[in-house]
């Protein structure tokens, strides 16, 4: 079955590459290049662009370097010019990022929004908003404090700032890429913070990101901190050895199948299939997780990771009794 599909794709490709090229193509290309230049020669002066080197930001590679090697001069020039228009077009946004890059103190001038009454000390959120017509960004960067360990706070906050920075970069690259082709595009980024668990012992903070272009995709990342011992918990650290990967994965597969059997509206991809070769096989060693307020392990998957997009971000609570013989400590999961 798999072979048949591959063969057909190969056949299709062979047919595609044998689409006959009309003899006129050379002529059409030549004259288009000629007439295009003549038509364009009138407005070859400077103009302020809103586009930019966005396409290159996305990591494109050129096929052949020999094509660009003949004129070594223009490369640095084109770069600085790209920078300049970048700065003109989005000055307000650029200031924010310069701030992120250069001075943590700058972040304090952004609006600080306390989350929940008893968390004021622990968590604040800095918010950044941009609204440029069809391009909108609402990026909230959490900051933890009063954890009793400044280096832990610092490393988490650095990470959150870097995530905010990356989101901002993605947003800018997408905006520029769409403007670069004269597209009246739509793109928005919305990120925020959710507190999953806040007890005397534990704090689980999730950061979600929703990117919307033609359709939306949501991702969410969690950190779980042991507030008493000032430790950032990792998934491997909860277990004695790697056997947890199989145990949790099998449990998740069983839960997926059970949920699908009980509710026909639910669809998961519990294993790779011909159509969905990226279906679930097993959790990553450092799979995204948090610990809920009942001290149970919750495994989280991003949108599209193990289920179709309409299922959204999906979570599985792993019953602690399935894990008890593998735990490195009885302190966290009960």
């Amino acid at each position: 079955m798999e072979n048949k599909k591959v063969r057909n794709m190969d056949e299709l490709k062979r047919e595609y590459t044998s689409i006959p090229i009309p003899a006129e193509l050379d002529q059409v290309v030549q004259s288009a290049l000629e007439s295009g230049r003549q038509a364009d020669s009138g407005n070859a002066s400077f103009s302020t662009q809103t586009g930019g080197a966005a396409v290159s930001d996305a990591g494109m590679r050129i096929e052949s370097h020999s094509q660009t090697g003949s004129r070594p001069v223009s490369r640095p020039r084109s770069r600085s010019r790209a920078r300049r228009s970048w700065a003109i077009g989005v000055a307000a946004v650029a200031i924010f990022v310069a701030g992120l890059n250069t001075s943590p103190a700058f972040a304090r001038t952004l609006s600080e929004v306390p989350v929940l009454g008893n968390l004021v000390d622990v968590l604040t959120v800095r918010e950044y908003k941009a609204d440029k017509g069809h391009y909108e960004a609402d990026i909230k960067v959490p900051a933890v404090g009063n954890l009793g360990d400044s280096s832990l706070e610092h490393s988490l906050n650095e990470k959150y700032l870097a995530e905010g920075q990356k989101l901002y970069d993605t947003f800018m690259a997408e905006m520029k890429a769409q403007q670069a082709i004269g597209e009246d595009g739509h793109f928005s980024v919305d990120s925020g913070v959710v507190i999953k668990t806040e007890t005397d012992e534990l704090l689980s903070v999730g950061r979600y990101v929703e990117e919307t272009a033609a359709s939306a995709a949501t991702t969410i990342k969690y950190d779980t901190v042991d507030k008493k011992n000032h430790v950032l918990l990792t998934l491997p650290s909860l277990f004695k050895d790697d056997r947890y990967i199989d145990v949790i994965s099998e449990n998740i597969k069983a839960q997926m199948k059970q949920q699908m059997a009980e509710d026909s509206n639910k669809i998961f991809w519990p294993e790779p299939t011909e159509d969905i070769p990226d279906g679930f096989t097993q959790i990553a060693k450092d799979q995204n997780f948090y610990i809920n307020s009942s001290n149970q392990l919750v495994i989280s998957f991003d949108e599209y990771e193990v289920a179709p997009g309409y299922m959204g971000v999906v979570e599985f609570v792993i019953p602690t009794e399935k894990l008890s013989s593998f735990l490195s400590s009885q302190e966290y999961l009960k």
Binding site: L33, G36, R37, A39, D40, S47, Q49, G51, G52, A53, A54, V55, S56, M60, R61, I62, T68, S74, R75, S78, R79, R81, A82, S85, Q179, A180, I181, G182
Partner: peptide, 11 residues
């Protein structure tokens, strides 16, 4: 040819 948007040759 008319476009002003190619900023980076590698793209």
């Amino acid at each position: 040819i008319k476009s002003d948007t190619l900023k980076d040759e590698t793209a």
